[in-house]
Amino acid sequence: MSLPPINPDKTASGIALDPQTLERVIPESRRPDGTVRKQIKIRPGFTPQEDVRRFRGTKQAQQDANALPKGHIIGWTPPPSSQASSSAAKPMSKSAKKNAKRRENKKEDKKESVADDWEDDDDEPTTAAGVTAAPQSSAAETERKKVPRSSTGSAHTAESPNWAEAPDDGALASELEKLQVK
């Protein structure tokens, strides 16, 4: 005879088999304040309300057993997994090898097209072909350019203005006049 499990399975109401006496009991437990609840014996044949199952007739039980899983689409079958293993075993044709190389080259080109310095993208927008497009100024862009760029740490020049080091005094004065209370 095998020994009963150390941590027996519990029902919804907490009833488990005592490993020593093989009786149904609610095992002792510890309360939040640190005291211990005593083990409670359950009379043979007693089933608490939490453990009572809902009655299902024979036809209903059979229907539940034959039911499709939730979200299943009728008529849909998963693709066979053996196809992937068989394609790996076959050698690729000349055109398939050529297409695979083209895909790899496209992936490499996409990786190279991503710029490392994101701030350069703000100054000179480029087209898909990599040609520098004419800068288009809008009100939102001019406001964005006025934001201080202290993270660059570069000096203020005409080509790359650093608004943190050389703010526009005229615009700053007009902003201060707007803020003054009269």
Rank of each mutant, 00 (worst) to 15 (best):
G57R: 10
A128R: 13
N105K: 15
A96Y: 03
D116L: 12
S82E: 15
A96I: 01
A133C: 09
S29G: 09
K145A: 15
K101W: 03
R103S: 04
K59N: 07
T11W: 00
D64R: 03
A133Y: 05
S13V: 02
R149N: 15
A164C: 02
K145I: 00
D122M: 12
A129M: 09
K38W: 02
T127E: 12
A166Q: 11
D18Q: 01
F46D: 00
T127K: 09
K101F: 07
R54N: 06
P91S: 01
S81T: 10
L68A: 10
S137I: 10
G130V: 02
A89E: 10
A140D: 14
V147E: 15
K90D: 02
P125E: 08
E112F: 09
S86H: 04
T157C: 00
V114N: 10
N105V: 08
G45T: 03
V114T: 15
M92S: 11
K145D: 14
R56L: 08
K101S: 08
P78R: 12
P8L: 14
T11V: 03
F55I: 06
Q136K: 14
A12C: 00
A84W: 04
N162F: 03
K97A: 09
R43W: 00
I73N: 04
A158I: 12
S95K: 15
G130L: 13
A134G: 04
E177G: 10
